[in-house]
């Protein structure tokens, strides 16, 4: 839906994008980044309102710089700010936006009605915006963004100012837009938890580049494993780590010297990872010499190796990476950009 290649954008001396490349596919995509990392600038460029200083950007196969009107006709946009015209009725605003995007007046009236019902403002649709709560205004903004049946809708901080209940409702509504309505959604947000909840994919911006992008499952899945805290000396810890590596597990140090983060590695080419009789055991391998698929297998394997070395276990728990971990790692100055394969994105 959106493809950027070597995208460069500067505001004066401040470089917002420095040869950034990424793809935004179908479904719901989160656009993450700290303040000032270029989320809103990117939205502006997608809408053809800002001209890139270098590289290329394609939206639905079109260049927003040269075909801005065509792009914007099929893209919806809900801004971050809350101050819509106070004296206009929600229905009038939504209908007007529909007409601006090329929907004939009579159809626009009907669609404005329908869409306000869909976002839960059916009974409130003829109220002035000024009399509405923040949650209702966010729904009006969403309604005006999708009333003209766009192929892509850009939502800038759509849950800003909402209480937890309203936020849950709004997130569920956005998820519906991306699935049931069949409209691709890009959410600009700095709230990782909500992006993780409803997005299929994510683009993380940091320091003028795309620090990470791809399907959330892929990004989070890379860090799944077991965290083991040992009750032994440092030499034994190192010996256990070497043994686990020899058995084709990924081993990284934990937060303290007595901790190890153990992750499964894919089986070597041509070697079946599992058998029907002995899940997780390769044919001909010793009981401990295996790769693990399920979390239980990995726990068992680590436990067996630790026991074999005569060490004690203080803690053995699953270690799942959250989007926050990916974000922090990607945003760290020395961390290499982590870009999941584009074809893995939904």
């Amino acid at each position: 839906m959106v493809t950027a290649r070597e995208l460069t954008k500067r505001w004066g001396s401040h470089v917002v994008f420095d040869r950034a490349s990424f793809e935004i596919g179908s479904g719901v995509t989160g656009l993450l980044g700290a303040n000032g990392t270029g989320k809103t600038t990117l939205i502006g460029m997608v809408l053809g309102l800002h001209r890139p200083d270098g590289g290329s950007l394609r939206v639905n196969g079109l260049d927003p710089e040269t075909a801005g009107a065509l792009v914007r006709a099929r893209v919806g946009y809900a801004p971050e700010h809350h101050n819509l015209p106070p004296d206009i009725r929600a229905h009038d605003l939504v209908r007007h936006i529909a007409e601006l995007h090329g929907i004939p007046a009579r159809v626009a009236t009907a669609r404005a009605n329908d869409i306000l019902w869909q976002v839960g403002l059916g009974e409130e649709r003829f109220r002035a915006v000024s009399t509405m709560s923040t949650g209702q205004r966010q729904r009006v903004k969403l309604a005006q963004a999708i009333v003209h049946d766009p192929v892509l809708v850009l939502l800038d901080e759509p849950t800003d100012g909402l209480d937890p209940v309203q936020r849950d409702d709004m997130l569920a509504l956005i998820r519906r837009v991306g699935t049931e309505f069949g409209i691709d959604v890009v959410i600009s947000s700095h709230l990782l938890e909500e992006v993780e909840r409803i997005c299929d994919a994510v683009v993380i911006l940091s320091g003028g580049t795309v620090a990470a992008s791809g399907a959330i499952d892929t990004l989070i899945g890379a860090g799944r494993g077991v965290l083991v805290q040992l009750d032994t000396d440092a030499a034994t810890v190192e010996a256990i780590a070497e043994d686990l590596r020899a058995r084709r597990f990924g081993v990284d140090p934990g937060q303290s010297a007595d901790q190890l983060l153990v992750t499964p590695l894919p089986p070597p080419p041509g070697l079946s990872a599992t058998t029907a009789d002995d899940p997780g055991t390769s044919p001909g391998a010793s009981p401990g010499d295996r790769t693990a698929d399920g979390p239980g297998d990995l726990h068992d394997a680590v436990r067996d190796v630790v026991v074999a070395h005569g060490a004690g276990i203080r803690r053995l728990s699953s270690s799942t990476t959250r989007l926050e971990d990916v974000f922090l790692q990607a945003g760290a100055e020395d961390a290499p950009p982590y870009v999941a394969a584009a074809e893995e994105a939904p």
């Binding site: 809408l47 309102l49 009107a69 065509l70 914007r72 006709a73 893209v75 946009y77 801004p79 700010h81 101050n83 819509l84 015209p85 106070p86 936006i97 601006l100 995007h101 090329g102 005006q144």
Partner: peptide, 12 residues
């Protein structure tokens, strides 16, 4: 009121 942003996000 920010309506200008919505107008310029349309074919205008």
């Amino acid at each position: 009121t920010g309506m200008l942003g919505l107008y310029l996000a349309s074919p205008l």
